Computed example of a mutant assay.
Amino acid sequence: MKTLVIFTHPNHNSLSYAFLQKVLEGIVENSNIKEVQVLDLYQERFNPLLVFNEEKRRRDMHLDPNLKKYREQIVWADQIVFVYPIWWGRPPAMLLGYIDQLFAANFAYKDGGFIPQGLLKGKSAVCVSTMKGPANYPLIFLNNTHKVLMKKALLNFVGIKKVKFFEFGNMESPNGKQAVKLNKVYRYFRKVHV
């Protein structure tokens, strides 16, 4: 199995970065995972801004030469792992800008008929996210918007049906059980297989 880890947080002293390290520790110990690539969107200085004009048309985004290496990473991966905080009930704008550009028509899905055809079938995805608020806040107050966005509106739409969530709340609390949650992620990646 080949795993692409997409990390989205501007601070390497953050709890999100600690979760990234636990993901990677588990991957290193997992004999099912043969190769791993890490894409740190902030360190990469990924440009999340969409630009459409006379020279850059939306319908040609799947051919953009500036995004070629990122498309190749997605094609290469059997498993895509997203590690990010939840801000305002959704992933950071940096990650959403990546998604807007990379999960484009004629690369991630194909229009046609009533339901578009997902072109990334056979892959799996894991979302590891942290938030300041209580763990049940997105479910109770936001109608599970985060999971609906990531699973149904994005991943299932492009053909990725196997999606696992680690959505950890109370992460800024002294009683947030951060060590327990970090260990849970480590144990999962140590054993996961597609």
Rank of each mutant, 00 (worst) to 15 (best):
M1Y: 01
K2S: 03
K2W: 00
V5F: 06
V5R: 06
I6P: 03
I6N: 00
I6L: 10
T8Y: 05
T8E: 04
H9R: 09
N11V: 14
N11M: 14
N13D: 14
N13L: 14
S14F: 10
S14P: 08
S14W: 01
L15C: 04
A18S: 14
F19S: 02
L20R: 04
L20F: 06
Q21F: 06
K22Q: 12
K22E: 10
V23I: 10
V23T: 14
V23A: 07
E25P: 07
I27N: 04
I27Q: 05
V28E: 08
V28F: 03
V28W: 02
N30P: 10
N30A: 11
S31C: 08
N32S: 12
N32W: 08
I33P: 05
E35Y: 10
E35C: 03
V36E: 04
V36Q: 09
V36Y: 05
Q37S: 13
L39D: 05
L39Y: 00
D40Y: 07
L41V: 13
Y42I: 13
Y42T: 12
Q43N: 11
R45T: 06
N47Y: 05
P48E: 07
L49P: 03
V51H: 13
F52G: 07
N53G: 05
N53M: 03
E54K: 14
E55M: 12
E55L: 13
K56H: 14
R59M: 15
D60I: 09
D60T: 13
D60Y: 13
M61V: 12
P65M: 05
N66S: 11
N66D: 14
K68Y: 08
K69E: 12
Y70P: 06
Y70D: 11
E72A: 09
I74Q: 07
I74H: 07
D78V: 01
Q79V: 04
Q79A: 02
V83G: 02
V83C: 03
Y84C: 09
P85C: 04
P85A: 05
P85Q: 00
I86C: 02
R90N: 02
R90A: 02
R90S: 01
